[in-house]
Design a protein around this nucleic acid. Structure first.
Lengths: 160, 160
DNA sequence: TGGATCTTGCGCACTTTGCTCAAGCCGTAC
DNA sequence: GTACGGCTTGAGCAAAGTGCGCAAGATCCA
């Protein structure tokens, strides 16, 4: 799979700025033909550069203003089982298997402190989960962003 | 701010399923008038339920297939300064201030192991950062999802 | 009973889309 | 040199969708 080129990166940047922009508007903004933008968009989509819109939904708007990261150790051989169990919990929005011995990083959201406590309890009670450690997100210092990387993909110089 | 109602949730669900769907198609899918969908969409956007498209871009497609979570302790009173410094690093895509004494959770992406090592080095060298601990994401057990919560927002019963 | 809010169906001008086609550009391989 | 594939471009056209306004119900609440 060919990596993104500069035009792809520019396209994404403009798209991020104006998500509602029409293909026509994008092409004018980028200074390329409409057909080109259409082809690029199709290619981006087909190669999966744009994942589900699900990521854009703000949990806070759904009534879940609290986010927490729970790290957990799981007993050997039960990883798949645990992963399935976690997937059943709606408040669990992301689970990563991380380096370290069978460790999980679980991201959860909650309605309030009490709700979080409840969810954490469910997770800890899950068979196969050993210990957990909960870290509540107090503040967003840098909100999820990829713009700097996209900007860099535009620049001709410094490949690193 | 009024929370999302069932129709909003259904709208989001359909939208997630077919991001490219036109307003007309959405209205038919939901069984409501086109004007209603248009109004709802405008309201959702205006209330910020849909955040930047930036979150949908897959770092892997940009050439950064590796993700890692770095937890760091910062020295007192230098939190703002550290946050600014981290924001300058393109590979840093998210920073959370978490509970625990001045702890940060930093999410970074990298081109490869060596690149990650470099980035981790930069972060550790940042003035104000005390200790760091890097956890490489080996596997995605549950990819970011909000569907279960949206589904629940549809259901009449069980408020919890 | 009255008002605020939301939904609905309708209409219309205008824009955008989806698709096709031929032509041009460019780097690579032969 | 020359042929090839891949990408871009401009043009065109029918069909579809958008943006917007408006008046007529629905609810809901006080």
């Amino acid at each position: 799979m060919t990596p993104l080129d500069a035009l792809d990166a520019r396209l994404l940047l403009v798209l991020i700025d104006e998500p509602r922009a029409t293909v026509l508007a994008l092409s004018q903004r980028l200074g390329v033909a409409r057909n080109t933008v259409q082809a690029r968009l199709a290619r981006l989509e087909q190669r999966g550069a744009l994942t589900s819109l699900e990521r854009c939904v703000d949990p806070a708007a759904l009534g879940y203003p609290l986010t927490a990261h729970i790290t957990a150790a799981v007993t050997q051989r039960r990883l798949a089982e645990v992963a399935d169990a976690l997937a059943e919990i709606p408040e669990v929005i992301e689970v990563h298997g991380i380096s370290g011995n069978l460790d999980l990083l679980i991201r959860v959201v909650a309605r309030d402190a009490e709700d979080l406590y409840r969810v954490a309890g469910i997770i800890l009670a899950t068979p196969g989960i050993e210990r957990t450690s909960t870290a509540l997100v107090m503040r967003n210092l840098v909100t999820h962003r990829l713009r700097p990387l996209l900007d860099r993909a535009n620049q001709p110089g410094q490949p690193r």
